[in-house]
């Protein structure tokens, strides 16, 4: 599978990732190389093999429904780039 400049642009947009226009070719080349390397996977027959999302055969543990957290807004917002009146600010959102 080879990735072209346009595909790099499309994926970069999906990932909201700024990639310089001049870098698109370079990324396209890198990505194509990686993908063709990855295509070795096609050499093995995996029909009937259950996908393995997780290394251990364990199941989800449940937590009791208890409020354990206290208000730490001040500490959390001390590291935020832009806040006002306790709110995180972003450029205007249009619904």
């Amino acid at each position: 599978m080879s990735v072209d400049k346009e595909a790099v642009g499309r994926i970069a947009h999906l990932a909201r990732l700024g990639v310089e226009e001049t870098e698109h070719d370079n990324y396209a080349r890198n990505l194509s190389a990686i993908l063709s390397f990855v295509e070795q996977l096609d050499s093995v027959d995996t029909s009937g093999v259950a996908p393995m999302a997780h290394p251990l055969d364990a199941s989800q543990r449940l937590r009791p429904d208890e409020v354990t957290e206290t208000d730490r807004r001040e500490q959390f917002q001390a590291i935020a780039p832009r806040v006002e009146a306790g709110l995180y600010l972003v450029p205007k959102v249009i619904e």
Binding site: E84, A85, G86, L87, Y88, L89, V90, P91, K92, V93
Partner: peptide, 15 residues
């Protein structure tokens, strides 16, 4: 929630 009241043209986020 996004709060669209005007914060100098920005949107406030309450999580």
């Amino acid at each position: 929630k996004s709060l669209h009241e005007d914060f100098h043209g920005e949107t406030g986020i309450d999580l």
